[in-house]
Design a binder for these strands. Sequence first.
DNA 1: ATAAAAATTTCATCATCATGCAGATTGCAT
DNA 2: ATGCAATCTGCATGATGATGAAATTTTTAT
Lengths: 184, 184
Amino acid sequence: MKKRKSRLPVIVDILTHNSIGSQEELSKQLAIRGYIVTQATLSRDLKMLRTTKVATDMGGYRYIIADSSHLSNEPYAKSQNTVQSGLHPAALSVGVSGNLVVIKTRNGYASGLAYDIDMLESPHILGTIPGADTVFAVVNETSERSDLFSLFSSFLPQQIMAVARHQFFPEEAVRGDVEIKDDY
Amino acid sequence: MKKRKSRLPVIVDILTHNSIGSQEELSKQLAIRGYIVTQATLSRDLKMLRTTKVATDMGGYRYIIADSSHLSNEPYAKSQNTVQSGLHPAALSVGVSGNLVVIKTRNGYASGLAYDIDMLESPHILGTIPGADTVFAVVNETSERSDLFSLFSSFLPQQIMAVARHQFFPEEAVRGDVEIKDDY
DNA sequence: ATAAAAATTTCATCATCATGCAGATTGCAT
DNA sequence: ATGCAATCTGCATGATGATGAAATTTTTAT
């Protein structure tokens, strides 16, 4: 019964695609996937993964992966559920600077969004690094900004892309500083 | 006795400059500064500040400010404590590479430093991501390196800035690549 | 100023999480 | 295979955190 190694990636997957608010809840999700463990073990697993519980916008709590470094070496490959239908509701704003795309999200959703970007397996994205409410996406040097605009338009709300459009098409820019607006 | 407004900034200050591992511990620190409150109140305060407990490198836990941008009514923001007085003692070194500024801190202080950078609300900074002992700050494309030097000089020890000066003023540089090192 | 509404806090308690310890499993070197 | 060390796990329990209800203060609107 030493399943930790295979279990941890599953936990990461569950946490990034579901809103898990307690270890008991996580335990149930794991059970569905064939991993039967107690809360005690999960406490250790979560400590190891450096996950943490944060307050969500709507009253509750949610576990997130607090640590960064999971460049797209895809240890747990393309799993089943993902966004894929499109339009990521957790995104608040997007900006471009050099070879980085910076996406602000509602608190706790950065990991999930970064994961979803990875799953696109786009040649334009080398890798992502999620924080608590910010995602850094490293862009391929040879990619055109128009490519990036298309890419992110495919899953970020149109409204957010519209605000950021001038960053993807500088030549059209009207002038005026980038407005990164955080509303809470 | 409705001190929450004045208490929250103090909590932020305590959390960013100390290693607090429990609400009881925070309660004691607050008491020293004249704020007598129960654990129940702190639970609500911390939820409001969206702080969270994370596993530290060795064994324990520590509360950090998970979010970078808070309630828009900014009850504290540019208030008393925190940065302002200048000179962030947790910083160890700073470097620039492309549109990224990389700051090394003493272990566990990256979150606090990133928070302080966010609080500057500088137009030169698009966003930050703290690791355990490293902060990545993404710089606005239109910002000059001299702007960045001024910005960081305002709250990083002069000695550190002096060492990094050649990175902010390449024309004066002697040569030498930026070392972006992530150690975990 | 006064009443009503909202916000803040504590108390008491329930819920959740962390961990020492013992038993079990695995890996590795005889 | 055997023994030993390291890893993993559950159990039981202590530690820590969250929250309903009631009391008190602050704010807001007459």
